[in-house]
Design a protein around this nucleic acid. Sequence first.
DNA 1: GGGAAAGCGGACTCCGGAGTCCGGTTCTGC
DNA 2: GCAGAACCGGACTCCGGAGTCCGCTTTCCC
Lengths: 180, 180
Amino acid sequence: MRLRADAARNGALVLDAAREVFAEQGLSAGIDDVAARAGVGKATVYRCWPTKDALVAAVTSVRVDEFTARVVAARDEPDAPAAFARLMLDAAESCAGNKLLHEGLISETPALAAKRAQCRAAMQELIDGAIAAGGMRADLRSEDVTLLFNGATSQLKAAGETDPAVWRRYAGLVVAATRP
Amino acid sequence: MRLRADAARNGALVLDAAREVFAEQGLSAGIDDVAARAGVGKATVYRCWPTKDALVAAVTSVRVDEFTARVVAARDEPDAPAAFARLMLDAAESCAGNKLLHEGLISETPALAAKRAQCRAAMQELIDGAIAAGGMRADLRSEDVTLLFNGATSQLKAAGETDPAVWRRYAGLVVAATRP
DNA sequence: GGGAAAGCGGACTCCGGAGTCCGGTTCTGC
DNA sequence: GCAGAACCGGACTCCGGAGTCCGCTTTCCC
């Protein structure tokens, strides 16, 4: 059964609105805000996604996929420690302007568990490579990097920091923490 | 006008209960929980402190003072870098078992602004000493340390991690990030 | 173009936690 | 020991955000 034209259109509007609103305000934004931005009633939002979490997962999963792709690319570079450092700095910079990416990386929602696992696996391989190359302390695991990175970025977000350079700087400190 | 005997007794009960409940559950615990633990109605809690924030400030400020004293002691030690490292590890370990200390260090409530400033000043002096001793990167400021430390510990708390050794380990990573 | 199904939206309920009210109880000064 | 002020506590309101309901509108298929 095909979706009615107006339903399809509204679904897309809602998705766009959710992307914008959540990127600007983070996941604490209300469904009402998303509905208002889309120019529809909130029931319409709930008709497309049964819960707020489902909508959030829909918009964040894309961001997580993009990030995973970047991790994989970094993993395949020859100089693992340098690739890792670059990845962290770039990721922080991206997060500075897009809360959605940040939330996606942080989120614990079950809907993204598989994607997170995939991302983590690639990260672990990158880290293993960096350790093998002697550019990283040997006892490090991907959870450590995730925790430090997420911790720092969460604090930056909470502080309302928007300057990408500052985010970059802290990512640099996290990278420094991983050195042998 | 002296406080009535029962009022004074209940005030102390509430304070003790708040310390316990917030240390165990963090600040997300409700006033109802505190009142129940104290064996008192919630109105009694509000009679002593006008808002939840005020009560929280009352119980956390002690913890912050204790921590500040430790920072000051560290500042006055001869080997600043080592004192700094020890301070971080000990603080993390303490936070693992006492959410209240953690919340006190993280909290942004205006009621503790003065105490936070005092703590930060001592930390800055400790850091300056460590930099002068060549044990820390020269561009570091106390906010950096605070942000990294709070970020990591917040994540640990959110993850429900209770093993002090793990908290210590991450504090060690934060210290590593400060090395020149 | 007409009718039925699909979709719409705003007003509604529900829920949890902060903060308030007031009738009943307990302490204190005389 | 008694008057009355101070205090008590549980039931209440208030608030904001998630999720639901239902009378009305739009679309689609014939």
